[in-house]
Design a protein around this nucleic acid. Structure first.
Lengths: 251, 251
DNA sequence: CTAGAATTAAAACGAACGTTTGAAAGAGTG
DNA sequence: CACTCTTTCAAACGTTCGTTTTAATTCTAG
């Protein structure tokens, strides 16, 4: 038996509670005493098992991102294998990248929507150690998908693809974070707006509903006509925007 | 005394520094001592002039959001006036909503990109008082634009429009926040990737570049084909996604 | 069973936090 | 000048933070 400890659900209870509290309050506003209190473990347990608060946050993500990175790469591998050296379709790439993520939201053993929300919010946290941690965790996957998109869209400038990858990450991150101005302002849950069966706090339904709405939007944005860099003037004030004068017809 | 140090001087210096520090570190991680230290005012000045840290954050936003809300409503008023009762084009609505915002990024007297970044990041802050504050500030504008989109897209279910408004806010918010995984991972500034003249820390250029890229993306997403709610099954794993089977041709 | 390691427990640490206090200094007015 | 009101200032307040320490307890290999 490797020197691994006897399960000691203390570790897992801390990780589960920390995952939820970080999601609800953010990293800075979540104290060790809140975590250890709700997890019903001693205050010193976090420092003993993980080394500190920062290391705890990293471990909260590491136990989930391992699965995510692995399956995202596998999904891309499968697609490229069945494409036999040819370029993939953008829709396939998006499905592999975002679909894999959203599938985590369906699975409670993978953190469910709690982890997805935490991920969406933490991506925008300004703390330096968080950003560098994510950079390391994501580097390989992002690079692979970026290259796949380059090949899938050979006529689109690579800089433009990076911009749009950016926008897509933002739309997804914001959508799964879920604490939004829009919901507060409209006073309506998106679930109710959808006119489907009332939200039953079922992560599976929430994740699928989000995926059904998000994927067409992302694909539409990714394939939108390229911006025109005609005049060096500022953003137009009253005249139709550049986007409004594209080749595709208005709707 | 070299110069008069009137009340407005102290107030504005605090607001300017707080705006920047909240943007760089987030609300929780920015302390009163950091703010008053950089602003070179006494620690008690914040509580004297604003009443506390929360009230300071609200004032940081209030002095900017007034302009933004006003001009967003005016832009919509102009469009509706010249449409003479008819429906607007989605591109016009997006231009009015997002273009007005991005124009703030060009103007230093309106906070420039610093305020835009702060806004983008704060929208995802989990603190309750922040969310309710934003809800109150945004309520009227969001409602007006939502109704305009309903009229502009009469064939699209209103729930779908709300979802996509959501996604658009996310893409914008994330893009202007600017501290992103993608940039850290790729190790390249988006400005450099664009292959244009090197970033000269000029907010005007940054804001225009962002607008040129963001608007087509948002419009493409907003006008994407509607999702199909065919089978009640889960998210497809290997077969082409729903989005991939839409009527519009693949690219 | 027992020695030693792993884990939990209770208490305290110093530092930093937001806020308050009371007096000093300015500014405007007669 | 005296007077009042506003603003600035240094110091301290009480609280909470993440972390550390030291002892007790539990687990496990020999």
């Amino acid at each position: 038996m490797p020197e691994q400890k006897t399960n000691s659900d203390t570790r897992d209870r801390i990780l589960d509670v920390a995952e939820r509290l970080f999601m609800e309050n953010g990293y800075e506003a979540t104290s060790m005493r809140m975590i250890t209190g709700e997890a019903e473990v001693n205050l010193a347990a976090v420092n003993y098992h993980f080394g500190g608060k920062e290391a705890l946050l990293r471990e909260v993500f590491r136990r989930r991102l391992g699965w995510l990175n692995e399956h995202r790469l596998q999904a891309l591998d499968r697609l490229e294998a069945q494409a036999g050296g040819g370029a993939l379709k953008p829709s396939q790439i998006l499905e592999a990248f975002f679909g894999t993520l959203l599938r985590m939201g369906e699975d409670q053993t993978l953190g469910g929507m709690t982890f997805l929300r935490l991920l969406g919010r933490t991506l925008t946290e300004p703390a330096e150690f968080i950003r560098t941690f994510f950079a390391g965790e994501y580097a390989e996957v992002i690079e692979r998908y970026k290259q796949a998109l380059y090949r899938a869209l050979p006529d689109v400038p690579q800089a433009e693809i990076v911009w749009r990858l950016h926008f897509m990450l933002g739309a997804m991150s914001y959508a799964i974070a879920g604490t939004d101005v829009l919901r507060v302002v409209t006073g309506v849950e998106l679930d109710d707006l959808a006119g489907e069966r009332p939200a039953q706090d079922d992560d599976t339904i929430r994740a699928r509903r989000l995926a059904q709405r998000l994927m067409p939007f992302l694909l539409g944005g990714l394939r939108a006509p390229l911006p025109q860099f005609d005049e060096p003037g500022g953003i137009q004030k009253e005249s139709p925007s550049k986007a409004a004068r594209q080749s595709r017809p208005q709707i």
